[in-house]
Simulated assay, not measured.
Amino acid sequence: MTRLPHLLLAQEHGGQVPLNPTAPKKDLRPADAWFRVLVEGESAAPADAVREVRVHFEGTRQSLAQGWIDSALSVLIQQSGL
């Protein structure tokens, strides 16, 4: 994310995200890499306000090269009839 979507996310305005010290404050550019995600809650009621939530993501690491190699080997095995 190159720009924060809301002013309240910046540390200078009470949020958790430090801004890039070399960029103008009005640009709201984070100091580090941040990713926007969509989190759906269990409640059907819409959220009308900006609120802080903590989310824990789990996953496994896999290199792009390993994914390509696995796909290529899979195709070779399928085509060879083994």
Rank of each mutant, 00 (worst) to 15 (best):
T22V: 09
A33Q: 12
S74C: 04
A33E: 13
F35Y: 09
S63R: 11
S74T: 07
P21W: 02
A44D: 12
P46R: 06
P21R: 05
M1R: 06
L38R: 11
A47G: 03
A31D: 10
A44Q: 09
P30N: 04
Q79N: 07
S74F: 06
H6R: 11
S43A: 15
V39A: 11
T22K: 15
E40R: 13
K26M: 03
V53I: 15
V55Y: 02
A10E: 07
T2A: 07
R29Q: 11
L76E: 04
P5A: 13
L82W: 03
L19R: 02
W68H: 11
S43D: 14
Q62K: 13
D32F: 11
A10S: 13
T22F: 07
H56G: 01
S74P: 00
V75W: 02
L9P: 00
L19S: 04
K26S: 14
S80F: 00
L7I: 14
G81M: 08
P21A: 07
S80P: 00
R3W: 01
P46N: 03
A47S: 14
A31C: 01
W68V: 10
K25E: 09
R61W: 09
F57H: 07
L28A: 03
R36H: 02
L73M: 14
N20H: 10
D48N: 09
D48W: 06
L28M: 13
L4C: 10
L19N: 03
A65T: 10
E40W: 02
